[in-house]
Amino acid sequence: MNVLRLGFILMLVSAISAGALSYVFFQTKPIIEQRKAEDTKRVLLEVLPSAKSFKELNSSEFKPLDDSVMFITNIYLGIGSQDNPVGVAIKGVTVGYGGSIVILIGISNDNKITGIEIIEHKETPGLGSKIAEKSFTGMFVSKTLNDPLTIKDDLTAIAGATKSSQAVAKLVKKIADYVLKNREAWR
């Protein structure tokens, strides 16, 4: 009998807890989702400033990248103020020195890189982490997709973080080639 009583009290406590949590969850859910959406929009505008709004492609609407470590996860079409296409923003993943690196790259209709943001990385703080700084990402801006885009030619690696720099440059190059080959399909 005692076991039943104890079990009942535990059940009651769990039920109160679950109730309270559900309440908080449904209160915070819309805020969390809105923040996420705003965040995505903000970064998209950062890499493709000429766009007014963005339309995300379904993953069935684009071909995957043919590579074993690099992937394209999202493609957003940038739309200008007169409903005209102004460019495309592509989110890609690669592997750096410490783990995955997620980047977002904006490309205008005249095949120029308009901006790059490092969304996520696990590179060594103080060394590889500098890939996220403007001094590194800025190098890519206004290069065209036909440029060599390699560390030796037109880009310089961060001192002490060659692997991290290489990883980003390779992904950018891969995405550049991909866009040159496939962009007609989305227009």
Binding site: L10, A20, L21, V24, F25, T28, I31
Partner: peptide, 18 residues
């Protein structure tokens, strides 16, 4: 444990929101 976990989850969700 249940009481503590409840407060932790409330903190977790609120921080995610704000």
């Amino acid at each position: 444990i249940i009481v503590i976990a409840t407060f932790v989850t409330i903190t977790d969700l609120s921080m995610a929101a704000y």
